[in-house]
Simulated assay, not measured.
Amino acid sequence: MAHPYRRRGRRKVCRFCVDPSLPLNYKHPEVLRQFLSERAKIVPRRISGNCSYHQRLLTREIKRARNVALLPFTELP
């Protein structure tokens, strides 16, 4: 019998590895917005399912988009 607290689910896969045509660039805020929480915080890779390489690129591009005002730093309640 499985442990009652252990959750077995489908392994998340990196969207950028699966679909290389998906743009990972600060000029595409609609793609980057999918990886922000309701409070405009960057979603960690254990939740998003990204590989470490693409998570680092994603973080860098989100920060760039914030600096040129394409994405918000915070969401007001």
Score class of each variant (00 low, 15 high):
68 V>I: 15
74 T>G: 02
72 P>E: 06
76 L>W: 05
69 A>H: 15
71 L>N: 04
52 S>M: 10
66 R>L: 04
10 R>C: 00
32 L>P: 04
54 H>R: 07
8 R>M: 05
17 C>G: 06
71 L>G: 05
28 H>D: 11
68 V>R: 08
40 A>N: 10
40 A>D: 08
76 L>T: 12
66 R>C: 06
45 R>L: 08
47 I>F: 01
54 H>L: 06
60 R>P: 02
38 E>D: 09
67 N>M: 08
27 K>P: 00
1 M>K: 14
71 L>Y: 11
48 S>T: 13
17 C>A: 10
33 R>L: 10
30 E>Q: 08
22 L>T: 12
34 Q>T: 07
45 R>S: 01
8 R>G: 04
8 R>A: 06
28 H>F: 14
3 H>E: 10
38 E>M: 03
6 R>V: 04
72 P>W: 08
16 F>M: 09
45 R>A: 01
70 L>K: 15
58 L>R: 03
25 N>L: 07
55 Q>S: 03
59 T>Q: 04
40 A>E: 11
47 I>K: 01
1 M>L: 13
42 I>P: 01
41 K>Y: 07
56 R>P: 03
25 N>H: 14
55 Q>H: 13
1 M>T: 12
49 G>L: 00
27 K>G: 12
26 Y>F: 11
20 P>G: 08
71 L>K: 09
31 V>E: 11
58 L>Q: 02
69 A>E: 14
59 T>G: 01
55 Q>C: 01
69 A>C: 11
21 S>R: 15
5 Y>N: 14
72 P>M: 06
69 A>L: 13
42 I>L: 10
68 V>F: 09
10 R>D: 00
44 P>W: 00
62 I>R: 10
9 G>R: 12
12 K>I: 04
2 A>Y: 02
24 L>C: 08
57 L>Y: 06
51 C>P: 05
52 S>H: 11
4 P>G: 04
33 R>C: 06
37 S>H: 03
76 L>H: 07
11 R>Y: 02
1 M>H: 14
77 P>Q: 13
35 F>M: 09
11 R>Q: 07
17 C>W: 13
8 R>E: 11
48 S>M: 03
32 L>F: 02
54 H>Q: 09
28 H>E: 11
69 A>I: 11
8 R>I: 06
41 K>L: 08
38 E>Y: 05
31 V>N: 09
54 H>E: 07
64 R>Q: 13
51 C>A: 05
11 R>S: 02
23 P>L: 10
52 S>Y: 07
39 R>F: 04
4 P>E: 06
18 V>D: 01
55 Q>T: 02
32 L>M: 06
47 I>P: 00
44 P>H: 05
1 M>A: 14
48 S>P: 09
53 Y>F: 11
53 Y>R: 13
73 F>C: 07
2 A>K: 12
74 T>D: 07
55 Q>N: 05
30 E>G: 10
21 S>F: 06
27 K>E: 14
5 Y>C: 05
4 P>H: 15
75 E>R: 12
16 F>H: 08
23 P>D: 08
65 A>S: 12
29 P>D: 03
72 P>F: 03
17 C>R: 11
15 R>D: 14
45 R>N: 02
41 K>D: 13
22 L>S: 04
61 E>Q: 15
37 S>K: 02
49 G>T: 02
2 A>H: 03
61 E>R: 15
40 A>T: 01
68 V>K: 12
52 S>A: 14
15 R>N: 10
75 E>I: 03
